[in-house]
């Protein structure tokens, strides 16, 4: 990639630099081999995982997610998916920190409704406050509400991650102007988390000026997840470069690309 800026165009989260602006989840794949192949094809460096009960007495030799997503290669982002209250979200983060040897980066989501998986922003604010005080670097999933986003930043979250559409819906960027407003106000990275369905959605998010996009279902539920992971990688790069390049103004009427002067007819 070539840019007019002198420094490389990296994403910085909690003081660490990443060359990829695509963050991916590891859910919904048919097996770990597919998880591995799609994750590698995406070029993502930050990978979300869920924290769940181990299977006791079952499948002793069962392969582990961390065998295909090794800690020395990726930055893991444990999430609080499935948490509907502050207590469960905080417990999950503390377990994740212990599980990952003191790792502080977490994705906080406190849900409020099973049908929409819409975030409960009041509980999210409370959980974020506790987690930041406890030393976590909190990347926070929230609604595309500029006021809540501002409060989450004031609390000390390291990244604000508004949804573009409901989790797993693939409906695309439904509220671009609110996401734009969140980006305009924020001093921390703003990433679209949830709602992307295909590559053009990811590009639209990046063209708005998002620092990155976090996605899972758009890749895992594609007919060919590995190919879609590659498509997303390119879409994120294309959208970012278009944002940095600065798009032309929209005009109501045509403007000829070939000169009028010198016509011989």
């Amino acid at each position: 990639m070539q840019h007019t800026t002198s420094s490389p165009d990296t994403l910085t989260i909690a003081g660490k630099q990443y060359s990829s602006r695509l963050l991916v989840g590891t859910g919904k794949y048919k097996d770990l081999a597919e998880t591995k192949a799609a994750t590698e094809a995406s070029g993502a460096q930050i990978i979300t995982v869920a924290i769940r009960r181990t299977n006791i007495g079952q499948n002793k030799g069962e392969p582990n997610l961390l065998d295909v997503i090794p800690l020395d290669r990726y930055t893991l982002l444990p999430n609080t998916a499935g948490c509907y209250n502050v207590e469960d979200a905080v417990r999950t983060c503390r377990l994740a920190r212990e599980l990952l040897d003191g790792h502080k980066l977490v994705k906080l989501e406190v849900l409020g409704d099973e049908k929409t998986l819409y975030p409960d922003t009041i509980q999210t604010l409370k959980a974020a406050e506790i987690l930041v005080k406890d030393g976590f670097d909190v990347m926070v999933y929230t609604s595309a509400d500029p006021l809540i986003a501002r409060q989450l930043e004031e609390i000390g979250c390291v990244a604000i991650m508004p949804l573009a559409a409901p989790i797993g819906s693939g409906l695309g960027i439904r509220d671009p102007y609110n996401i734009l407003e969140i980006i305009s106000n924020a001093k921390v990275p703003v990433l679209v988390d949830a709602g992307v369905g295909t590559a053009s959605d990811a590009a639209v998010a990046m063209e708005l000026g998002c620092a990155g996009v976090l996605m899972n279902t758009a890749i895992a539920a594609a007919k060919n997840p590995v190919l879609m992971a590659s498509a997303m990688k390119h879409a994120i790069i294309a959208g970012r470069e278009a944002f940095l390049a600065g798009r032309m103004p929209r005009k109501r009427y045509a403007s000829a690309s070939s000169p009028i002067d010198g016509t011989f007819f």
């Binding site: 590891t26 919904k28 979300t48 998916a81 377990l95 212990e98 599980l99 990952l100 989790i167 996605m215």
Partner: peptide, 29 residues
């Protein structure tokens, strides 16, 4: 519902009716 750090696994004795949760990382988004 209280985290037991790995460093305390050897010393943390369980009591009758304790509720233990053992978790790991799995696929999620």
């Amino acid at each position: 519902q209280e985290l037991v750090p790995r460093s305390q696994f050897d010393s943390a004795a369980l009591s009758p009716h304790d509720t233990v949760e053992i978790v790991h990382a799995i696929g999620g988004g």
